[in-house]
Each structure stands twice: as structure tokens, then as C-alpha cells.
């Protein structure tokens, strides 16, 4: 299949950046990233600079890949990361626009590569259970209801790719933050420090410069792991409760 690619090129964070057009011949069995590999091979052959994009596991779990394809993070197929998106979802002759994640809190490093350290900072603010190695009791000491563990898992499935932020017109990181708070809060081991966790993670999220949630639901639609915005509602609830319960004046 013959395609026209409109790819965002930007030298560094300060550069203004612009689209560059490429013609490319792809097979429908290729993944989107393999198509990008072919493009880069062509560029290198012409001694031009290849398009920088992030990728690693190429099986939809590491969360590295990050491309907005025709306006949609990770492209048109629901519940799928860019690396697992295959070209059979496009038609011969299509023009495909590829842009980086857009959010102030995710500054562009080069071309399609952005800096997502803000997510690490949010986790560092409290996205953990405060238990040292060696302090654990037997794994079966606390039974956990199967459905409860399963709900926690649904939230824990987040791969930290940032598609939620990219999709959100407000560049809000609520889904990412809420998913971690839900995962930990739904497990008895993480329940104990939930009040403190929700306060500090939300504060960190705001400090990192993410926008406010206006419940457009774009995050949920574009999340490759289909994490529900019910987690955001849960976080809101816990946040209000924690604020009211907090001893801080």
C-alpha cells in the first residue's frame, strides 16, 4: 500500500518544528512502528536524519511508544498502543499525520520524543506502599476478594504511556494519577496510607503543570489499556474525604 506521511519534525524543545512530508510504501502486515522503521531506513540511505520516536518492547506493555496518529494518541484502533497498531487499519492512498504527545508537562525532546518524567515525579510523591524489603508477612495472611483484586488490577494495568494526557484537551493527568491511587487503595496493603497518598499525588500532579479535568472522557477512550474514568471519580471522592479528614489547618 502507498501512503503519504506527514510527520512532525522538531530539532529540540526550543525549535518551532513543522511537518515534513514523505511518500512510503508499506505492507498491511507491518506494525505502525515497522512502517516508521522503513521510513527511517530510507532516510538513512539518503544520509538524512531519521525521525526520532520512542519505542521499546513493541508488544504493548512498556508504554514507550507515543504518537498521535491523525489526531488520536496511538491511532484509530481502540485499546491498542502504536506498536501493536497494524497497517491493515489504513487504506491504500491514505494520508497519515503523526504528531508528538502535546502537553506543557511533556516537553518535546526531538521530533516525536517527549519527556514524561513528570509521571515519575507523581509516583515518587506517594504511588507506593511504604514497606521495606523483608517486612512482609505471609502472602496469604490477608485474603482479598477476587473481584476486588481484579478491579485493582484493571487500574494497575496502566503502562504510563501518557496517552491520557495527550488525548485530553486540557492535558490533565487525572487518569494516570487516579489509576495508581485506585490500584493501591483497593488493596488492603495500600489502603492504610491512602489519605496521605491521594493528597500528595494530586498536589504533585498540579505542581507538574498538568491541566484540570473537565470530564471530557477522551482519556478513557484513548487509553490503550482501557482504564475507566470511574477511577477518576474515585480519586475525587477520596481527595475530598482526605482533605476533610486531614489534620492540616
Amino acid at each position: 500500500m502507498k501512503l503519504k506521511l506527514k510527520v512532525w519534525r522538531q530539532k529540540n524543545a526550543k525549535d518551532k518544528g513543522q511537518f515534513e512530508l514523505f511518500d512510503i510504501e508499506a505492507s498491511e502486515h507491518m506494525s505502525f512502528l515497522e512502517m516508521m522503521d522503513v521510513l527511517n531506513e530510507q532516510l538513512i540511505e539518503k544520509k538524512k536524519e531519521p525521525v526520532a520516536f520512542e519505542h521499546d518492547c513493541r508488544e504493548g506493555i512498556c508504554g514507550a511508544c507515543s504518537m498521535v496518529i491523525n489526531g488520536q494518541p496511538h491511532g484509530p484502533q481502540q485499546g491498542t498502543t502504536t506498536c501493536q497498531l497494524h497497517m491493515r487499519h489504513f487504506k491504500d492512498g491514505d494520508t497519515i499525520a503523526v504528531e508528538p504527545w502535546r502537553a506543557k508537562a511533556f516537553p518535546i525532546i526531538k521530533d516525536l520524543v517527549v519527556d514524561r518524567s513528570a509521571f515519575d515525579h507523581i509516583i515518587q510523591a506517594g504511588g507506593f506502599v511504604s514497606v521495606n524489603t523483608g517486612q512482609a508477612q505471609d502472602g496469604n495472611a490477608i485474603p482479598i476478594e477476587k473481584t476486588q483484586a481484579s478491579k485493582a488490577f484493571d487500574a494497575a494495568a496502566c503502562i504510563g504511556c501518557g496517552a491520557c494526557v495527550a488525548a485530553c484537551p486540557n492535558a490533565s493527568a487525572m487518569l494516570f494519577t487516579a489509576a495508581k491511587i485506585a490500584h493501591l487503595g483497593l488493596m488492603p496493603q495500600g489502603k492504610i496510607e491512602e489519605n496521605q497518598r491521594v493528597l500528595s499525588m494530586v498536589k504533585k500532579m498540579d505542581d507538574e503543570g498538568f491541566g484540570k479535568c473537565s470530564n471530557t472522557g477522551a482519556c478513557e477512550v484513548e487509553c490503550p489499556k482501557e482504564i475507566s474514568i470511574a477511577n477518576i471519580a474515585r480519586m475525587n471522592r477520596k481527595y475530598m474525604a482526605a482533605t476533610l479528614a486531614s489534620d492540616k489547618k
Partner: peptide, 15 residues
Amino acid sequence: NIIDQCVAQAVPFAR
């Protein structure tokens, strides 16, 4: 010990 440790970290193992 690993299983115990991971459970304590709230790893959502199958149940």
C-alpha cells in the same frame, strides 16, 4: 519471601 514481599507491595496477583 518474594511472593510475600510483592503481596505487601499490593501487587494484584490472581486470586
